Deep mutational scan, measured.
Amino acid sequence: MASQGTKRSYEQMETDGERQNATEIRASVGKMIDGIGRFYIQMCTELKLSDYEGRLIQNSLTIERMVLSAFDERRNKYLEEHPSAGKDPKKTGGPIYKRVDRKWMRELVLYDKEEIRRIWRQANNGDDATAGLTHMMIWHSNLNDTTYQRTRALVRTGMDPRMCSLMQGSTLPRRSGAAGAAVKGVGTMVMELIRMIKRGINDRNFWRGENGRKTRSAYERMCNILKGKFQTAAQRAMMDQVRESRNPGNAEIEDLIFLARSALILRGSVAHKSCLPACVYGPAVASGYDFEKEGYSLVGIDPFKLLQNSQVYSLIRPNENPAHKSQLVWMACNSAAFEDLRVLSFIRGTKVSPRGKLSTRGVQIASNENMDAMESSTLELRSRYWAIRTRSGGNTNQQRASAGQISVQPAFSVQRNLPFDKPTIMAAFTGNTEGRTSDMRAEIIRMMEGAKPEEMSFQGRGVFELSDERAANPIVPSFDMSNEGSYFFGDNAEEYDN
Rank of each mutant, 00 (worst) to 15 (best):
G362R: 04
D480W: 04
H324V: 05
A70M: 02
I96V: 14
K90F: 00
N250F: 07
A427L: 15
P277L: 03
S217A: 14
M456P: 00
S486G: 02
M371G: 05
S262L: 01
F258N: 04
G54N: 11
N397L: 07
E380V: 02
S345I: 11
I406N: 13
F258H: 09
L226A: 07
H324T: 11
I347E: 02
E434N: 07
S165K: 00
P410M: 05
A427Y: 01
S359C: 11
M159G: 03
R74Q: 14
R75Q: 01
N59V: 11
M43E: 08
S407N: 14
I257L: 15
G288E: 06
C164I: 13
D112P: 08
A366K: 05
N397W: 13
E465N: 02
I425E: 01
N397T: 11
S274G: 11
N483G: 02
P453S: 11
M32R: 03
L328C: 02
W386N: 05
D203I: 03
P410A: 15
L47R: 14
D160I: 08
I475Y: 12
T45D: 04
R400C: 09
L298N: 05
M440Q: 12
P423V: 14
S245D: 01
L108M: 10
A182L: 05
A237M: 13
S407F: 02
E449H: 01
G158E: 04
G228T: 14
K98M: 11
I33E: 09
R175I: 02
G393C: 09
G158T: 10
D302A: 13
Q149W: 11
D480K: 14
L266C: 09
I475M: 14
I63F: 09
K113C: 03
Q231A: 08
Q398F: 13
M32W: 07
D160P: 05
V100L: 15
Q42M: 06
D51H: 02
E495N: 15
I406Y: 10
S69H: 10
R156T: 09
I116V: 15
Y97G: 11
T62D: 03
A286K: 05
Y296K: 03
L226P: 09
R261G: 09
E454L: 14
N492M: 10
L47N: 05
R342G: 15
E434L: 08
L418R: 01
D51R: 09
W120E: 06
M105K: 10
R204H: 10
G249C: 07
N211T: 13
C275I: 14
N309Q: 11
T134D: 10
E465A: 01
Q12H: 15
A471C: 05
K214E: 03
D203R: 01
M374Q: 13
W104F: 15
A286G: 13
A493Q: 07
Y52P: 00
T130I: 01
C279F: 05
L266Q: 10
S326T: 08
G485R: 15
S407I: 03
S141L: 03
E81D: 13
S392G: 12
G268P: 13
R175M: 08
M1W: 12
A387D: 04
T157W: 06
V270Q: 15
V285H: 15
T396A: 15
D72Q: 04
K227A: 10
D51Q: 14
S28G: 14
I25H: 01
E292F: 11
A237T: 11
R389L: 03
P95Q: 08
A181E: 08
E292P: 15
T424S: 12
A332T: 14
T15D: 02
V352D: 04
I41P: 13
M481E: 08
R317N: 07
L358C: 09
D497Q: 00
P322I: 07
R446Q: 04
F258K: 11
R246L: 02
C333Q: 10
P354D: 10
A123Y: 01
S457N: 15
E320M: 11
S314R: 05
S50V: 05
S407T: 15
K90D: 02
R121M: 11
M238G: 09
V67P: 04
K113I: 02
Y97P: 03
F458N: 00
Y10S: 03
R208V: 01
Y313R: 08
T430W: 06
E449K: 12
F479K: 03
L466T: 08
A271G: 15
G126Y: 01
G450Q: 01
Y281I: 10
S438C: 03
A85I: 11
K198C: 06
K325R: 08
G404A: 14
G37W: 12
L264K: 13
A178L: 09
V352R: 03
M238S: 13
P89D: 03
S50R: 09
V190F: 01
T134H: 02
F230W: 15
Q327H: 06
V109D: 04
P277I: 06
P474M: 10
P161E: 00
D203W: 07
R246G: 04
P419A: 12
T378S: 15
H135R: 08
M440H: 12
T430S: 15
N125R: 09
A22E: 05
L110Y: 05
K214Q: 14
P248Y: 01
I197Y: 03
E454V: 15
A451P: 00
M167S: 11
G180D: 11
S478N: 00
E484G: 03
S3F: 15
L264H: 11
L298D: 11
E369A: 04
N395W: 00
Q415W: 09
L315V: 11
Q398S: 01
M447N: 03
G94L: 08
I25R: 14
S377W: 05
L306S: 11
T433F: 09
D128N: 14
T430Y: 03
K77N: 14
K87M: 11
G54Q: 12
I475D: 05
R389E: 08
M167F: 07
D16E: 14
P83F: 05
G394I: 13
G35D: 02
A260Q: 03
K103V: 15
G435A: 07
S314L: 02
S467Q: 06
P322W: 08
E18I: 09
R361L: 03
E46S: 05
G249E: 06
R19D: 09
Y281W: 13
N321Q: 10
D240H: 13
L68T: 07
M136V: 14
Q311A: 09
E192F: 09
F304H: 07
E339D: 15
L344N: 08
I225W: 11
A178I: 09
Q42T: 03
A182W: 10
S377T: 14
D340Y: 09
W386F: 02
A179F: 10
T146C: 07
L68M: 10
E192Y: 14
G393A: 15
A85Q: 14
D127K: 11
S407E: 04
R261L: 04
M66Y: 07
H82S: 12
E64T: 11
P354F: 05
E14Q: 10
S310K: 00
L61F: 09
N492V: 04
A286D: 10
L133I: 15
S262M: 08
Q405R: 01
M374G: 07
W139C: 09
G393T: 03
V285C: 10
F412N: 10
A337E: 01
M167L: 15
Q241H: 06
E11L: 04
G362T: 08
E115T: 07
Q58H: 14
A233M: 13
A2G: 01
I197S: 12
Q399I: 04
A284P: 13
I197M: 13
F458L: 13
Y40H: 15
N76Q: 15
Y289C: 11
W330V: 11
F346R: 09
D302K: 09
Q241K: 09
L266T: 13
W120D: 09
T215A: 14
R208D: 02
R121L: 14
H272G: 10
W120Y: 15
K214F: 09
P419V: 14
R446C: 07
D290T: 07
D302R: 09
N483W: 00
G126C: 14
N417G: 09
K198P: 02
M191C: 05
G158I: 07
Y496S: 09
S287D: 07
A237D: 05
P283Q: 15
K103R: 11
R99N: 10
M239K: 05
R199C: 07
M426H: 01
A260N: 03
G485I: 00
F206T: 01
A411S: 15
I41H: 03
A218L: 12
Q399W: 09
